[in-house]
């Protein structure tokens, strides 16, 4: 079972449907109490966590905080449970953002979220090819030149390029498209809207989750 964190805005249909197309069950977690109930004791069936997100960075952090989900995300990152941020959800994994002022993020990955320069069409909207720069199980069967669907006005300037697994070139900017460090993963584009390539990535994330769950059960 994959937990999808949604503290507010609520347009999760695409994400839940995307996971159901690749055969994964999902549960929506909108507050810490729901999470605690799900992971209590021996009945913890949560194999991985997805952090989607639309709207503004500051609002999203505010809502996560109000729902008590920030400590949950920190715990998930610490214990090695696979965590996948999508679009704004990926940006939230980083240190800070310049979207409408300066906001602190979760700081699970090193980098800052900045706006595209005004000489480019913003949002960066549409299908962009991916340059896969690192081999990673999340990108299994994803090739250089595969197209994925982006919609965003801000992008991550990663302090450590080692965590950039795939990038997309938009104008003169190399936009981190897929990021990952240990169990903390993210995609700037929408895999749930990226046709078959996106479904491969969702499938790969589910496989990582199952592997983690199996490993955890073996230890217990």
């Amino acid at each position: 079972m994959i937990a999808i964190l949604d503290p507010g805005v609520g347009n999760l249909q695409s994400v839940t449907k995307g996971f159901s197309r690749v055969g994964a069950e999902t549960v929506v977690v909108d507050q810490a109490a729901v999470w605690r109930d799900l992971v209590q004791g021996s009945k913890d069936e949560i194999e991985g966590v997805v952090l989607p997100g639309v709207g503004a960075f500051g609002d999203a952090m505010f809502q996560l905080r109000a729902a008590g989900l920030i400590p949950v995300l920190r715990q998930v990152a610490r214990e090695g449970r696979p965590l996948f941020g999508i679009c704004l959800g990926m940006q939230l994994l980083f240190g800070s953002s310049q979207e409408h002022g300066r906001h602190m993020g979760l700081g699970l990955l090193p980098g800052e979220v900045v706006r595209f320069k005004d000489d480019m069409k913003v949002p960066h909207m549409g299908w962009n090819d991916l340059d896969v720069v690192r081999t990673h199980p999340l990108l299994r069967d994803v090739k250089v030149g595969d197209y994925v669907y982006f919609v965003h006005s801000y992008y991550v300037e990663a302090t450590n390029r080692d965590c950039v697994l795939a990038a997309a070139t938009y104008g003169s900017v190399s936009v981190p498209g897929v990021v990952g460090q240990g169990n903390v993963l993210g995609a700037q584009f929408h895999p749930e809207k990226s046709g078959e390539v996106g479904e491969r990535i969702l499938h790969n994330f589910v496989a990582l989750c199952r592997a983690w769950q199996t490993q955890r059960e073996a230890v217990q």
């Binding site: 805005v9 347009n11 639309v54 709207g55 503004a56 704004l88 949002p123 909207m125 965003h152 006005s153």
Partner: peptide
Amino acid sequence: AHRFGEQC
């Protein structure tokens, strides 16, 4: 735009 994001 404010509530759901400009992208939608």
